[in-house]
């Protein structure tokens, strides 16, 4: 029985960890390239979920198309935010863009309250078969779990492939250490940075939609907690490192679920664990698990 519990929790932890990882990748990619903590990242996630919801509810699209539209529009939102709010500040002191990012986060949340209303909406737009429970011995697993794990796994592979197996990905890693020199390679740096925001935002929206399928409530502040946790995951992994974001995301999701699973009376402190792990880790390894190369030999 203990083993079944453990397996059940392992699955749930992987699930949550995967969702964190998808969000954390966007944080870490943007930070890696621009040294900017995009605090609006979680809010882009929330907008993506609303876009998907309205595409289905108001425009009558099939659920899968609505999801894709929501993800695409989130990408467009990320693109616009970078172009309008962050690009003009690229050479300004870092504190300016940080404050802009915080302002952008408030703006997106408030705008969502105005546009969509503050009352939580139900995210009942996906087909019922996702809620079927499959039983394997003592294990009970929802179809949704397989869906989320499958998509997460594919997207993570896709991001790694992009970063380490394509020219564009190599340029993204080059920009992370040296923007002017990357432009000397004949690369259009603005375009690559835009692409990074688009990809990060689309991953966040994908994660947000899957989040909403699991916890089917949509409201303007729903991006805050996942956004914060993913940020912590990115820092744990070593901010700026994509493999770090993956490891950090899974580590965080797994710990949260396992601790709550085995010490149910600590469930109320669940959100605290993220910060405890963060603080303890930073005491011993201030740069996170994966240290990002930033020094240059002169």
């Amino acid at each position: 029985m203990w083993l079944t519990d453990f397996a059940q929790n392992l699955i749930n932890g992987t699930l949550l960890g995967g969702l964190y990882a998808l969000i954390a990748i966007g944080y870490t990619m943007v930070y890696g390239i621009l040294r900017l903590i995009n605090f609006a990242h979680g809010d882009i996630l929330m907008w993506g979920v609303y876009f998907a919801l309205y595409a289905v509810v108001a425009f009558g699209m099939p659920w899968w198309l609505g999801f894709l539209v929501g993800i695409a529009l989130a990408g467009f939102l990320g693109f616009g935010i970078e172009k309008i709010a962050y690009r003009p500040l690229r050479n300004a002191p870092r504190i300016s863009s940080l404050i802009t990012a915080i302002g952008m986060s408030f703006f997106l949340e408030s705008l969502a309250v105005v546009v969509f209303g503050g009352i939580p909406k139900s995210f009942n737009i996906y087909p019922k078969f996702f809620n079927h429970t499959l039983i394997f011995g003592h294990l009970r697993i929802q179809t949704l779990t397989f869906f989320i794990l499958g998509i997460t796994f594919l997207l993570l592979l896709g991001v790694l492939w992009l970063l380490y197996r394509t020219k564009t990905g190599t340029a993204m890693r080059a920009i992370a250490t040296d923007i002017p020199t990357t432009s000397l390679m004949g690369a259009n740096v603005d375009r690559i940075i835009s692409l990074t925001f688009i990809i990060g935002s689309m991953l966040a929206a994908t994660s947000g939609i899957m989040w909403a399928m699991r916890y089917p409530q949509v409201q303007p502040y729903m991006g805050f907690v996942p956004g914060m946790k993913a940020f912590v995951a990115a820092v744990i992994g070593g901010i700026g490192s994509v493999p770090g974001a993956l490891v950090g995301g899974f580590l965080l999701g797994m710990t949260e679920i396992l601790v709550v699973g085995f010490f149910p009376n600590l469930a109320g402190y669940r959100d605290v664990f993220a910060y405890v792990i963060l603080i303890v880790l930073l005491m011993f390894r201030p740069t996170g698990i994966f240290t990002v190369y930033s020094e240059q030999k002169v």
Partner: peptide, 17 residues
């Protein structure tokens, strides 16, 4: 100004980006 976090091969590929 070589890219320290890329391999020698990737640095060269960047040259032909």
């Amino acid at each position: 100004r070589i890219f320290p976090n890329l391999t020698v091969e990737e640095n060269l590929q960047m040259g032909a980006f």
